[in-house]
Amino acid sequence: MEQGTVKWFNAEKGFGFIERENGDDVFVHFSAIQGDGFKSLDEGQAVTFDVEEGQRGPQAANVQKA
């Protein structure tokens, strides 16, 4: 798993971006967030995640709040 920081996340649209430790950004969809209840992330929040190849390039999977 990688570690990163939430760059931004739009809860209304259900997606955002995580900044990886290497400085690259990776797309995150709310469906990739682990846990119960409303799935959202806060700007600046530390997270761990896997990276999978999506239809439009790399995207975060198995996102967990650190």
Rank of each mutant, 00 (worst) to 15 (best):
G14F: 02
A11C: 06
V26K: 01
V26E: 02
E12R: 14
I33M: 05
G4Q: 01
P58N: 07
F17Q: 04
K7S: 05
V63F: 00
E52T: 11
G44H: 07
D36A: 12
S40A: 11
D24M: 09
G37S: 08
D36H: 13
N22F: 13
Q59G: 03
D24N: 15
V47G: 00
E2I: 15
T48L: 11
A61N: 09
E52G: 08
Q55Y: 12
R56T: 07
G37V: 06
V51K: 04
D50K: 15
N10E: 04
L41N: 02
R56S: 08
E21G: 10
E52K: 13
E52V: 15
V63P: 01
G44K: 08
T5S: 09
E21Y: 12
G44R: 08
E19S: 15
G57V: 04
G54Y: 06
F15P: 01
A46M: 14
E19I: 14
Q45R: 05
K39I: 06
V26G: 01
E43H: 14
R20Y: 07
E43K: 15
F38I: 10
G37Y: 07
D36V: 13
F27S: 02
A66E: 10
E52S: 09
G57K: 05
V28D: 00
D36F: 09
N22A: 10
K39V: 07
N22E: 09
G23E: 09
G4A: 03
G35V: 08
N62K: 08
G23L: 09
V51R: 04
D36T: 12
G37R: 05
N22R: 12
N10Q: 06
Q3K: 15
Q64G: 09
I18V: 04
E21T: 13
N22G: 12
A60D: 01
V6I: 09
V28Y: 04
G23Q: 10
K39S: 06
G44L: 05
K13L: 13
G37Q: 07
V28G: 01
G37N: 07
A46E: 11
A32H: 06
T5E: 05
E2Y: 15
G35M: 15
F30L: 05
G35P: 05
S31C: 05
K7H: 05
I33Q: 02
R20P: 04
G37C: 07
G14H: 04
G23S: 08
G35K: 07
S31T: 12
R20G: 05
D25C: 08
T5P: 02
G57R: 06
G35W: 10
I18K: 00
F17A: 04
Q59I: 10
A46K: 13
Q59P: 01
G37A: 07
V47S: 00
Q55T: 14
Q59N: 06
V28E: 00
G54K: 08
D42S: 14
F15C: 05
G23D: 11
Q55V: 14
V51S: 04
S40I: 10
G57E: 03
Q34I: 12
K13F: 10
V63H: 00
M1L: 13
D50G: 09
N62V: 04
H29E: 03
A11W: 12
G16K: 00
K7I: 06
N10T: 07
E12I: 11
V28W: 02
G35C: 06
F49W: 02
P58Y: 10
A61Q: 11
E52A: 09
Q3M: 09
I18C: 02
F49Q: 00
A61K: 14
Q59T: 08
M1R: 15
D42Q: 14
I18Y: 00
Q55D: 13
G14N: 03
G35D: 12
N10W: 12
G54L: 06
Q55F: 14
F27C: 03
A60H: 00
V47W: 01
E43N: 13
K65T: 14
T5V: 15
L41Y: 03
M1H: 15
V6H: 01
Q45K: 04
V47K: 00
F9E: 01
E12M: 14
D50Y: 15
F17W: 09
R56E: 06
F49G: 00
Q64F: 12
K39M: 07
V51N: 03
E2N: 13
F49L: 04
W8P: 00
V47A: 02
G54R: 09
N22K: 11
G16T: 01
I18A: 01
M1Y: 11
Q45W: 09
T5R: 15
Q64V: 12
Q45F: 05
T5G: 03
W8H: 04
T5A: 07
Q59K: 09
G14D: 01
N22P: 08
G44E: 04
F17G: 02
H29W: 04
E21V: 14
E19R: 15
D25V: 13
W8Q: 03
K65Y: 10
E53Q: 15
Q45S: 09
Q34C: 06
N10R: 09
G4S: 02
Q45N: 08
D24H: 10
D50R: 14
N62C: 06
K39C: 04
D42F: 11
Q3Y: 13
W8V: 03
I18S: 00
G14T: 03
L41F: 05
G44M: 05
R20A: 06
E52D: 08
M1P: 10
G44Q: 05
D24T: 14
E53K: 13
K65P: 13
E2D: 10
G37D: 06
A66R: 12
G35H: 09
F30C: 05
G54N: 07
I33S: 02
F15V: 06
W8I: 04
E21W: 09
G14M: 03
G16R: 00
E21F: 11
T48W: 12
E2R: 09
F9R: 01
Q64P: 01
